[in-house]
């Protein structure tokens, strides 16, 4: 009788273990497959390269670098870089003394710039991921200067219902 009671007890525990294992595995699978694929770093890098392409030609700044409209000339959509944008672009063009050769270019959500130092250390959902590019370049033939391009992205995408 005792042995039979023990067997019943064992089966109750066994089913409890099955339930625990089932719930744990299901929760793990749901969390894993519903997690967002984070491509913000690639997006920030691609955005940076798009901006580089319209300012730099080899080791030289393009001739009209002082008049470039970053949205129009770099093929960026103005509606995407409006208020509350998921993106940020900042371009600084400096001479050899560190003085601005043209006014700094800032498009997108400028509050994202503050996320850049934070995102170097951690990856978090609402903290933008940044890409920084600095290069010494020649302008007006032989003058040495520097271009600094900082881009950030915080686009995560989302589900849509029909």
């Amino acid at each position: 009788m005792n042995k039979r009671a023990g067997e019943k007890l064992l089966s109750v525990w066994w089913f409890a273990i099955l339930v625990i294992v089932g719930v744990a595995v299901s929760a793990g699978i749901i969390i894993f497959y519903s997690a967002s694929v984070d491509v913000r770093n690639y997006e920030a890098e691609i955005l940076n390269k798009q901006v580089q392409n319209c300012f730099i030609d080899g080791n030289n700044l393009v001739g009209n670098f002082k008049t470039i409209d970053v949205l129009k000339d770099c093929n960026l959509d103005p509606t995407i870089f409006g208020k509350g944008s998921d993106y940020f672009v900042k371009v600084l063009i400096l001479d050899s003394d560190g003085k601005d050769l043209r006014e700094p270019i800032i498009v997108g959500d400028s509050s994202k710039e503050a996320d850049c130092p934070i995102s170097e250390g951690i990856t978090a959902k609402h903290i933008s991921v940044c890409n920084d590019f600095n290069k010494r370049v020649y302008y007006n033939k032989n003058n040495l200067g520097m271009i600094k391009i900082l881009t950030a992205s915080n686009q995560e995408g989302g589900k849509v219902k029909l």
């Binding site: 093929n75 959509d77 995408g157 589900k159 029909l162």
Partner: peptide, 13 residues
């Protein structure tokens, strides 16, 4: 038929 996924691109093409 239950839905889809949307993602934005920033180029103006």
């Amino acid at each position: 038929s239950s839905g889809g996924y949307t993602y934005k691109f920033f180029t103006n093409y």
